[in-house]
Deep mutational scan, measured.
Amino acid sequence: MTFKAIINGKTLKGETTTEAVDAATAEKVFKQYFNDNGLDGEWTYDDATKTFTVTE
């Protein structure tokens, strides 16, 4: 399945996608990506659209 992340950061904005077997796996991938890029913020997840949003 394809999962999307919308990034609303102070220094980084945009979208990225990942292929994962479930939402928990996708969340781990996205959180690692955000940690690697120095992002920290509020997380939400919309199961209907398979979209994570992080707002810094």
Score class of each variant (00 low, 15 high):
Met1Lys: 08
Met1Cys: 12
Met1Ile: 14
Thr2Phe: 09
Thr2Ala: 04
Thr2Ser: 07
Thr2Trp: 12
Phe3Trp: 04
Phe3Pro: 01
Phe3Lys: 01
Phe3Met: 03
Lys4Arg: 12
Lys4Ala: 05
Ala5Asn: 02
Ile6Thr: 06
Ile6Pro: 02
Ile6Ser: 03
Ile6Gly: 01
Ile6Asn: 04
Ile7Ser: 05
Ile7Val: 10
Asn8Asp: 09
Asn8Thr: 06
Asn8Ser: 06
Asn8Glu: 06
Asn8His: 10
Gly9Leu: 15
Gly9Cys: 14
Gly9Glu: 04
Gly9Trp: 13
Gly9Asp: 03
Lys10Phe: 13
Lys10Gly: 10
Lys10Ser: 11
Lys10Pro: 12
Thr11Pro: 07
Thr11Gln: 11
Thr11Lys: 11
Thr11Tyr: 14
Thr11Ser: 10
Thr11Trp: 14
Leu12Arg: 05
Leu12Asp: 09
Leu12Thr: 10
Leu12Phe: 15
Leu12His: 14
Lys13Asn: 09
Lys13Arg: 13
Lys13Ala: 08
Lys13Met: 11
Lys13Glu: 07
Lys13Val: 09
Gly14Leu: 15
Gly14Lys: 11
Gly14Trp: 15
Glu15Ser: 09
Glu15Pro: 06
Thr16Ile: 15
Thr16Asn: 05
Thr16Leu: 15
Thr17Asn: 05
Thr18Arg: 04
Thr18Ala: 07
Thr18Trp: 12
Thr18Gln: 04
Thr18Phe: 15
Ala20Lys: 01
Ala20Ser: 06
Ala20Cys: 07
Val21Lys: 13
Val21Cys: 10
Val21Ala: 11
Val21Met: 11
Val21Tyr: 08
Val21Ser: 11
Asp22Pro: 00
Asp22Arg: 01
Asp22Glu: 03
Asp22Tyr: 02
Ala23Cys: 09
Ala23Lys: 13
Ala23Ser: 09
Ala23Tyr: 10
Ala23Trp: 10
Ala24Phe: 09
Ala24Lys: 11
Ala24Gln: 10
Ala24Met: 09
Ala24Gly: 07
Ala24Asp: 07
Ala24Pro: 08
Ala24Ile: 09
Thr25Arg: 05
Thr25Cys: 07
Thr25Ile: 07
Thr25Trp: 06
Thr25Tyr: 05
Thr25Met: 11
Ala26Ile: 02
Glu27Pro: 01
Lys28Arg: 11
Lys28Pro: 01
Lys28Phe: 07
Val29Thr: 08
Phe30Thr: 01
Phe30Gln: 00
Phe30Cys: 01
Phe30Arg: 00
Phe30Tyr: 00
Lys31Phe: 04
Gln32Arg: 10
Gln32Leu: 08
Gln32Ser: 08
Gln32Pro: 01
Tyr33Arg: 05
Tyr33Cys: 10
Tyr33Thr: 04
Tyr33Ile: 06
Tyr33Ala: 04
Phe34Thr: 11
Phe34Pro: 01
Phe34Gly: 04
Phe34Leu: 10
Phe34His: 02
Phe34Asp: 01
Asn35Trp: 14
Asn35Tyr: 13
Asn35Ala: 15
Asn35Phe: 14
Asn35His: 14
Asp36Glu: 13
Asp36Met: 11
Asp36Ile: 08
Asp36Pro: 03
Asn37Asp: 06
Asn37Met: 15
Asn37Thr: 10
Asn37Ile: 15
Asn37Pro: 03
Gly38Val: 06
Gly38Lys: 06
Gly38Leu: 09
Gly38Met: 09
Leu39Ala: 05
Leu39Thr: 05
Leu39Lys: 04
Asp40Gln: 13
Asp40Tyr: 15
Asp40Trp: 14
Gly41Pro: 05
Gly41Val: 11
Gly41Cys: 08
Gly41His: 09
Gly41Glu: 04
Gly41Leu: 14
Glu42Ile: 14
Glu42Ser: 10
Glu42Ala: 09
Trp43Asn: 00
Trp43Asp: 00
Trp43Ser: 02
Thr44Val: 09
Thr44His: 13
Thr44Glu: 10
Tyr45Met: 00
Tyr45Ser: 01
Tyr45Ile: 02
Tyr45Gly: 00
Asp46Lys: 01
Asp46Phe: 02
Asp46Tyr: 03
Asp46Gly: 00
Asp47Trp: 07
Asp47Lys: 07
Asp47Ile: 07
Asp47Met: 04
Asp47Arg: 05
Ala48Glu: 12
Ala48Ser: 10
Ala48His: 09
Thr49Ile: 04
Thr49Ser: 10
Thr49Leu: 05
Thr49Gln: 04
Thr49Ala: 06
Lys50Asp: 01
Lys50Trp: 05
Lys50Ser: 04
Thr51Phe: 01
Thr51Pro: 00
Thr51Gln: 01
Thr51Leu: 03
Phe52Pro: 01
Phe52Asp: 00
Thr53Trp: 11
Thr53Arg: 05
Thr53Lys: 04
Val54Cys: 05
Val54Phe: 15
Val54Asn: 01
Val54Tyr: 13
Val54His: 05
Val54Ile: 13
Val54Arg: 04
Thr55Cys: 04
Thr55Ser: 08
Thr55Leu: 07
Thr55Phe: 10
Glu56Phe: 11
Glu56Gly: 05
Glu56His: 08
Glu56Met: 13
